[in-house]
């Protein structure tokens, strides 16, 4: 259950006078459930990309349990992310043509030559846990809510210590969104993972321990 420490983080995009993201200080305790909110363009996605190592911070320090991922090379960030982060995106990013089970196992299959022992059973357990009964169904035939639940199962297959979701309910109807929100919270707790959720969805945000509001790349308030 890693904890996050952010110090003097700054991201600038070429041609823009003000930094896209500037965070002087932010800490997330191990096992915490943090929400990120704010209007479009406020830097939520940029922050998500930084804390997951998808992008590298220009300046500052961004350390998970002492590992400053802003200093890691691209390949090492990929490896660190594969080992520590489970991602759930607004658009699912499932692979059409593969079954729900194969989609859950895909990150493991691609990162090593053979599946680690018990991976298949773990995939089955996770799919059952998120309520997907027909594991061999092709994902393109699933409903949007089901797709996001498969994505949640996939995020947890490598037993990550950090679970990050970017607008996980934004493309779902209220009912499916509520189900996915519950699953995220429950599974993060079950997996003892630190959860970071970027969202506009007030019903999801109110269930988190703490919400950070971003505006124009800066932290405006911390609530929850």
């Amino acid at each position: 259950m890693p904890a996050l420490a952010v110090e003097a983080l700054e991201v600038r995009f070429p041609g823009l006078a003000t930094p896209a993201l500037a965070i002087a200080h932010l800490t997330v305790e191990s096992g915490a459930r943090l929400g990120l909110t704010g209007p479009s363009g406020s830097g939520k996605t940029t922050l998500v990309n930084l804390v997951t190592g998808l992008e590298r911070a220009g300046r500052g320090r961004l350390a998970w349990d002492g590992t400053d991922i802003a200093r890691l090379s691209e390949g090492r960030r990929d490896r660190w992310r594969a080992a520590n982060v489970g991602l759930v995106m607004q658009d699912f990013h499932l692979f059409d043509g593969l079954s729900a089970r194969d989609n859950v196992l895909l990150p493991l299959r691609l990162s090593r030559l053979s599946l680690p022992a018990g991976a298949g059973a773990e995939a089955d357990r996770l799919l059952a846990r998120v309520g997907i009964e027909r594991r061999d169904q092709k994902v393109e035939t699933l409903s949007r809510g089901q797709k996001q639940r498969v994505a949640v199962a996939r995020a947890l297959i490598a037993r990550p210590g950090i679970l990050v979701a970017d607008e996980p309910t934004a493309s779902l109807d209220a009912e499916a969104g509520a189900t996915v929100a519950s699953l995220l919270l429950e599974l993060a707790t079950e997996a003892k993972a630190t959860l970071i959720v970027a969202s506009h969805d007030p019903r999801l945000l109110e269930r988190l321990d703490r919400v950070v509001r971003l505006e124009a790349g800066r932290i405006r308030e911390t609530g929850g």
Binding site: D78, A82, L87, M89, L110, S111
Partner: peptide
């Protein structure tokens, strides 16, 4: 591109 990029985001090595 999205799909392939996504593979890396979800843990596939380059």
């Amino acid at each position: 591109r999205r799909q392939i990029g996504a593979l890396r985001a979800f843990g596939a090595p380059r």
